[in-house]
Design a binder for these strands. Structure first.
Length: 438
RNA sequence: UCCGGGUUGGGGUAGUGGUUAUCCUUCAGCCUUGUGGAGGCUGAGACGCGGGUUCGAUUCUCGCACCCGGACCCA
C-alpha cells in the first residue's frame, strides 16, 4: 500500500456522481448565460505567478524545472491563464468574452476543512466590459448556480463591496492622502473580522491613518447596512468615492433586475485579500454561519489584462470552490444523494446469453443504464448483485421464460414480477417497468 | 511552519509487554442453474512506516507518513 499525498483526494463512484451532478449544475447555469467552456493546461511557467505575486509565491506552488530546463508550476488558479489567453488572441475575440471552466488547481498549503492541495473550482469570467451589467451578470450566474443546486436565500448571501469606495474613503479621510497605503488599508479591512479591534486599528495606522481617522473610517464602513446608507459614505469621501458609490449602486440595481438582488447585501467590511481586484468585490457566505470562512469570492480586476501586455481590458469574475460549496450544500441538506442507481439488470440464466445481450443492448439504445452478469453468477447471486447496484428493474431472461416466448419483469423494490412477450421487449421507446405489464 | 486529536482486516471496533488478536459489518463461495434485501455453513481480510528500549513491542518511546480539527496563509 502506498500512502496518499496529503491534500490529494480520491473520489469513489458514489461521491463522484454527486460531484458530477453539482459540477454539471453550475456549468449549466453559466452556459444558460452564454458562457463558453474553455480548457487550459495544468502547467504554466512559474514566472507568470512570480511576476504577479513576487518570489514568495513559489513556496505556495508545486513548481519544478522540467527536462528542458523550464521553470514550471502546476496552476494554482485560473485567472492568469485566462488573462494570458485573452492577451494571446489580441483583437480577435469579440467582446464581451464570457468563459467558464471547471478544473483542479494545486497549491502547496496547509490542509484544513474545505481546503486541500488539489482542489476544484469553476471559474466564470467576463472580459471586455466595464459596465455594471457585467458585474451584475456574474453575481446573477453565481446566484443562479446556487439556487439550481437547491440552495435558497436562507442558505447563503453575497456580501458586496467596492475597493474604490474603501480606498477612496481612506484617502479622503487621511490628513495626508499621499502618505496612505490604500492596499494595506484594504488588507486591514479584509482581516477585520479575524483580529481584535486594537490590532485592526494598528494595521490602519500602519497604512497611514491616525487613530481618530481610523475609527472614523471604521464607523463609516460599519454603518453601511444597506444601499441607502451609502449616502453618508459618498458625502464623507471625495469625487472618487462618489463615483465608486455610484458604480456600486449601479451594480446592485442591475443585480436586482437580473434576479440576484435578494441574495446581495452591501457590506463594506468585505474587501478580499487579493491585490489585483479593482472595483466591485464580493464574497459568498453561509447564512447560518456554520461554514466559518467565505464559501467563495469574486470581483473586478480591470488592470490585469493590461499588466499581461494586452489592450486595456476590464474584467470581472467569480470562482466557486467545490470543497466549500459541498460544505454549504451539506449543511443546507441539498448535497446530491451519493447512492448509485441502475435502471435495469438483465439476469441471464441457462443458455440465454444471446437473447439477454440483445435485450440489454436495446435497453441501452433507449438511453438507460443497464448491467448484466459478468461474473458467471447463479440466479440468486445475480439478484444479490442487482440489489447492490440499486437496480430498479430486473429483466429475467431464463430458459423457462424463453420457452414461453416471454421475459420476466421484476420490480426490485417490491419484488413484484410479471411477464412480457420477448418479441416486444423492450418497446420502441420509453422506460418499461413492471407497471407497464402488470 | 506551528498547535491539538487520531491511525488495529474494505468499513466500524475490542484488547494485550508473551499461545491462534475480539466482535459487528463487508466481500467471495456454498446450502440454492429459477428468485435478492431472512437464516446457516465455509473462506478472505488488520495492529500505518521506520528506529529505540526489551529475552520478546500491535502495546512503552522517538521520528516520519497520512487523516480530522485549528493557527498562519489564502492568488
Amino acid at each position: 500500500m502506498y500512502d496518499q499525498l496529503k491534500g490529494f483526494r480520491d473520489f469513489y463512484p458514489g461521491e463522484q456522481s454527486a460531484r458530477r451532478e453539482v459540477t454539471d449544475t453550475i456549468e449549466a447555469a453559466a452556459k444558460r448565460y452564454g458562457f463558453r467552456e474553455v480548457a487550459t493546461p495544468a502547467l504554466e511557467r512559474t514566472q507568470m505567478y512570480t511576476d504577479k505575486s513576487g518570489e514568495g509565491i513559489v513556496e505556495e506552488l508545486y513548481s519544478f524545472t522540467d527536462q528542458g530546463g523550464r521553470d514550471v508550476a502546476l496552476t494554482p488558479e485560473l485567472t492568469p491563464t485566462v488573462a494570458r489567453m485573452v492577451v494571446a488572441k489580441g483583437q480577435e475575440l469579440s467582446k464581451p468574452i464570457k468563459w467558464v471552466s471547471t478544473r483542479p488547481f494545486w497549491r502547496y498549503e496547509q490542509v484544513q476543512q474545505g481546503r486541500f492541495r488539489e482542489f476544484y473550482q469553476t471559474n466564470i469570467d467576463v472580459f471586455g466590459s466595464a459596465e455594471p451589467e457585467a458585474d451584475a451578470e456574474v453575481l446573477a450566474v453565481a446566484a443562479d448556480a446556487l439556487t439550481s443546486l437547491g440552495l435558497t436565500g436562507d442558505d447563503f448571501e453575497f456580501r458586496v463591496s467596492h475597493r474604490d469606495v474603501l480606498g477612496g474613503l481612506v484617502r479622503a479621510l487621511a490628513a495626508d492622502p499621499d502618505a496612505v497605503d490604500t492596499a494595506d488599508a484594504i488588507r486591514a479591512v479584509d482581516k477585520r473580522a479575524k483580529i481584535d479591534e486594537a490590532e485592526y486599528l494598528t494595521l490602519l495606522e500602519e497604512a497611514g491613518l491616525d487613530r481618530t481617522t481610523a475609527r472614523e473610517f471604521d464607523d463609516l464602513i460599519v454603518g453601511v447596512d444597506g444601499v441607502d446608507d451609502l449616502d453618508a459614505v459618498a458625502e464623507a469621501g471625495g469625487e472618487d468615492v462618489e463615483a465608486a458609490v455610484e458604480n456600486l449602486r449601479a451594480v446592485l440595481a442591475a443585480a436586482d433586475d437580473f434576479g440576484a438582488g435578494e441574495y446581495c447585501d452591501v457590506s463594506l467590511t468585505t474587501a478580499r485579500g487579493l491585490d489585483y481586484y479593482t472595483g466591485v468585490v464580493f464574497e459568498c457566505f453561509d447564512s447560518t454561519g456554520e461554514v466559518s470562512r467565505s464559501v467563495f469570492g469574486g470581483g473586478r480586476y480591470d488592470d490585469l489584462i493590461e499588466s499581461f501586455g494586452g489592450q486595456p481590458t476590464p474584467a470581472v469574475g467569480v470562482a466557486p470552490g467545490h470543497a466549500t460549496l459541498k460544505l454549504l450544500c451539506q449543511r443546507a441538506g441539498v448535497w446530491p444523494d451519493e447512492t448509485l442507481e441502475t435502471d435495469y439488470y438483465v439476469l441471464s440464466v441457462g443458455d440465454t446469453r444471446a437473447e439477454a445481450a440483445r435485450i440489454a443492448r436495446d435497453l441501452r439504445a433507449l438511453g438507460h443504464v443497464v448491467e448484466a452478469d459478468l461474473a458467471d453468477r447463479g440466479f440468486g447471486g445475480q439478484l444479490g448483485y442487482a440489489d447492490s447496484i440499486n437496480a430498479e428493474t430486473t429483466v429475467i431472461v431464463g430458459e423457462q421464460d424463453l420457452a414461453n416466448d416471454e421475459v420476466t419483469i421484476k420490480e426490485m423494490a417490491s419484488g413484484d414480477q410479471t411477464t412480457a412477450p420477448v418479441a416486444e421487449f423492450p418497446p420502441e421507446a420509453g422506460r418499461p417497468t413492471y407497471d407497464d405489464y402488470a
